[in-house]
Nucleic acid binder design. Structure first.
Lengths: 115, 115
DNA sequence: CTGCTTTATCGTATTATATCGATAATCGGA
DNA sequence: TCCGATTATCGATATAATACGATAAAGCAG
């Protein structure tokens, strides 16, 4: 947890979480899941946002590796990056495994863990 | 995707993603997974940050429902909220299921989805 | 080459986040 | 009740994110 050198995996996972941590981008991801190979204009029409704003959100998703775009004539067709999403699912599964409820359901008396 | 009324579930999921979208908070979550019922001071010692900063990060995690704290004498013992993490895992699994690689591995020619 | 369509980028204003030091609140023990 | 230990909150500041309109870039049709 020290700031010394954060594992690149950790930074990358956080980047993906951050990309998905915006309701609009999350909706974009869902839209793309339902509409494979949709183009930017589709997402603009499906939202209330300016074209430039949608483009910026796509940039965030692209840089996080959540989506990928290919040139499609004058437009760009966007898709989810399945590899990234699979990796995310594994990481989340790993992060949430082997956890036992401690103080949520039934508060448990504990001793200080350090000094 | 319209901004009209975002489902509360979507906003909540985004909130959890946002909470986990910071490397330090992600590390805190891992620390808590390894050290059940640790107190705030443990997290402060394990980080390079000021106590107030750690406290703010805990607040973000708390408000997202990722962690829960119980009073433990003058200190506060923190734990992961297992219910939230399980819910997150389900949501991520749902989000990433039934996806087929489209333009990432092998670009596919597509037609416009709208108009 | 010239337009037309589509998308990305730039400049900018507003809002949110991160971090710290200082201070307040809370609890248990003397 | 007062003190020490622990944590939360406040105020300030710096950085990052969000959103828009305007403009640039890129590709295709003619």
């Amino acid at each position: 947890m020290k700031n010394v050198t954060l594992p690149p995996t950790e930074e990358r996972l956080a980047q993906i979480f951050r990309a998905l941590g915006n309701p609009l981008r999350l909706q974009m991801v869902r839209y793309m899941a339902e509409h494979p190979q949709c183009i930017t204009g589709d997402l603009v029409l499906a939202s209330d946002l300016a074209q430039s704003t949608v483009s910026e959100h796509l940039k965030v998703l692209r840089e996080a590796g959540v989506v990928a775009g290919v040139v499609e004539g004058p437009a760009r067709s966007y898709c989810l990056n399945v590899d990234t999403l699979r990796w995310l699912r594994e990481q989340v599964a790993f992060l949430t495994q082997d956890l036992e409820a401690c103080c949520v359901v039934e508060p448990v008396v504990s001793e200080r863990s350090i000094k």
